[in-house]
Design a protein around this nucleic acid. Structure first.
Length: 619
DNA sequence: GTAGGGTTAG
């Protein structure tokens, strides 16, 4: 009879409860020497002994017992011994390996265990080595081998190896196994081979929630946000609905990127209805969603409600406040975080520094930059980028340039571009030329770099230089995809591309813009045409300015939403200074609050003013 | 005994 009573923790095997070697006088080499019923009893006893282990100390005692009784020669006991040591949270892969190597003829189960153990131990290369060993010894893999092995490939981003393994899966006819298929979707997703992911997904006879989770995560990792939401819709309409936090995390993330506040709120609602307490990860993704959708107050409210705040929830909230120009609050949150004993990481500091630069908090920014170094967070190029932006915006261009020159790493185009754009704001051609030449020499594919420099030359009437830069741009044939703006109207997102005469309701929108222009003219608005389109006829200039995506989106929203309701431009691809001035006027004439998300910055327009300080020098 | 998770400057 197996006793299952609870044992005192300090004594693993009390007398009388351990395996009695006395039943077997000589430790058997072969389990056939034991009568069958007795063997089964022994196997069960061995299993329950292993199950009771709580740490390595106890496990080693159990190991000794098993060896003492000769049960190591029993393949069932040896397998469970390896599995317990390799897969338990307290286990040790080093010890598991030494046991594994003593097994005479390890089979598929033992190899699978070792592969899984190495993956759990984050030793992915070793998992592949074990698999190679398995094949060499002629042990055939089964459907349990591949999920862990493919996970190792996925985390190593080892596409080549993964594809070879996929070939073996096909050969072994294991490609119909649900778990194997889900792992393949994940592998191709992590390796950014979305077509392959989708091919596996499409050919599946049956799908599970994990299948949907894997394909949605694959789309999300590539930034295919719209497709993410479409797939989520498909999943729901096919009746696959189970409150799955991991799927909703990606859905909420897609909403954040698309600015789809309404859908994001729906996802939040289903989470609240179906899950009793949301974990910190879900909370963080919701904070991020609300902040990126312009609802910063909701984001802060959710942060306050988060029970076990960690470094990530602080980082997300700090970045959210930074986006909305609430730098002081971001700094306060950093102090609170430190008081709570949480360690800010590089991402936290990117958020804090960008908050300082958005609000012109130069001294505070410099202080934080020093503090981060003393906190042993090594500044990355992103932090230097923030600092260049911070100093540049404040007009400290020489300091910004010196910082770039003394950076411990090679400056990238982002840093130079940041310096160049602030040079344009402050009309510092001398440093601007240095930055622009760095960019042009590194064969920049960004037409903005050439244009910024040409505008600066135009300001100082250096027409020859203007033409030289323009010619270079034309000769290199650099093309930029047209910008776009997305606007949420009646809970739906509409996207407008600049100069797109094919967009829906184009004629109505043009009439509206025309009407708006008349009203603006009375208010004294003059388009900031000096910033754009040199050598273009006046009439064509006017036409082009009307085609700005942000203006199309605002006109559409004015036509299709009730008066008084706020207008939300959920995404915008770089707002020009003209659109900024224009939107200020619109907010005052039409008495509408207008929020524009310009990449990761928010502009709140109200009564002819804007919350940001970006364009103060251009006005 | 098997798969899937959040934050980042210009």
């Amino acid at each position: 009879m197996i006793r299952t009573q609870v044992q005192p923790t300090h004594v693993l095997i009390p007398p009388g409860d351990h395996l009695q070697p006395t039943h077997v006088s000589i430790p058997p080499r072969n389990h056939q020497q034991i009568p069958e019923f007795n063997l089964q009893l022994k196997e069960q006893e061995c299993l329950s002994l292993l199950k009771r282990c709580k740490n390595m100390e106890e496990f080693k005692q159990a190991h000794a017992q098993i060896l003492k009784c000769g049960l190591f020669w029993n393949s069932f006991c040896a397998s469970n011994l390896v599995a317990t040591c390799a897969l338990s949270v307290w286990g040790s892969m080093g010890y598991a390996c030494s046991i594994f190597h003593r097994i005479c003829e390890p089979g598929t189960f033992e190899f699978n265990t070792m592969i899984r153990g190495h993956v759990q131990d984050m030793n992915y290369e070793e998992a592949l080595v074990v698999y190679a060993d398995m094949l060499e010894r002629g042990i055939e893999p089964d459907n349990f081998t591949f999920p862990a092995l493919l996970k190792a490939c996925a985390l190593l981003r080892a596409l080549e190896e993964g594809m070879q393994i996929h070939g073996q899966i096909l050969k072994l006819r294991l490609h119909d196994d649900l778990y194997v298929q889900n792992s393949l979707i994940n592998l191709y997703g992590k390796c950014k081979k979305i077509e392959s992911s989708f091919a596996v997904f499409k050919n599946m006879d049956q799908k599970s929630v994990s299948t949907w989770s894997a394909i949605i995560a694959a789309k999300a990792s590539l930034g295919l946000w719209y497709e993410c939401l479409m797939l989520y819709g498909d999943m729901n309409s096919l009746g696959f609905w189970r409150p799955e936090e991991s799927i909703l995390v990606n859905v909420v993330c897609a909403c954040a990127h698309l600015g789809a506040l309404h859908l994001g709120k729906c996802a939040h609602g289903s989470l609240l209805r179906n899950i009793s307490s949301l974990n910190v990860i879900v909370h963080t993704s919701l904070i991020n969603m609300y902040a990126k959708c312009g609802a910063v107050q909701e984001a802060v409210g959710l942060f306050k409600k988060t029970a076990d705040k960690n470094q990530l929830s602080y980082s997300a909230t700090i970045s959210g406040l930074a986006m909305h120009g609430r730098g002081r609050e971001a700094l306060e949150l950093l102090s609170e975080m430190l008081r709570e004993g949480l360690k800010p990481d590089d991402v936290t500091y990117v958020g804090v520094l960008s908050a300082c630069s958005h609000c012109g908090l130069v001294d505070e920014g410099l202080q934080v930059f020093e503090q981060m170094k003393s906190d042993e967070v090594e500044p990355t190029i992103q932090h230097y980028g923030c600092m260049v932006d911070l100093l540049g915006r404040a007009g400290l261009l020489v300091e910004a340039y010196n910082l770039i020159s003394n950076m411990p790493m090679k400056p990238n185009d982002i840093v130079w571009r940041s310096l160049l754009s602030t040079c344009k704001v402050h009309q510092n051609l001398e440093i601007g030329e240095i930055a622009a030449n760095e960019l042009l020499q590194s064969n920049s594919k960004n037409p903005g770099d050439y244009l910024l420099l040409s505008y600066m030359y135009a300001r100082t009437r250096r027409w020859e230089d203007v033409s030289r830069v323009r010619t270079e741009l034309a000769e290199k044939g650099i093309y930029q995809a047209p910008g776009f703006s997305s606007v949420e109207v009646q809970r739906k997102i509409y996207r407008f591309f600049s100069q797109d005469a094919k967009c829906p309701h184009y004629d109505g929108i043009c009439d509206m813009i025309h009407q708006m222009e008349w009203q603006l003219k009375f208010e004294g608005y003059v388009p900031d045409t000096s910033q754009v389109l040199l050598n273009v006829q006046e009439e064509e200039k006017r036409q082009r300015l009307r085609g700005h995506s942000q203006k199309l989106a605002i006109a559409f929203a004015l036509l299709n939403s009730s008066g008084g309701s706020p207008i939300r431009i959920t995404r915008n691809l770089r707002m020009c200074s003209d659109c900024h001035t224009y939107t200020k006027y619109i907010s005052s004439i039409y008495e509408r609050e207008i929020t524009v998300r310009d990449r990761n910055r928010f502009h709140h327009f109200r009564d002819g003013t804007c919350s940001c300080n970006d364009f103060w020098l251009l006005a």
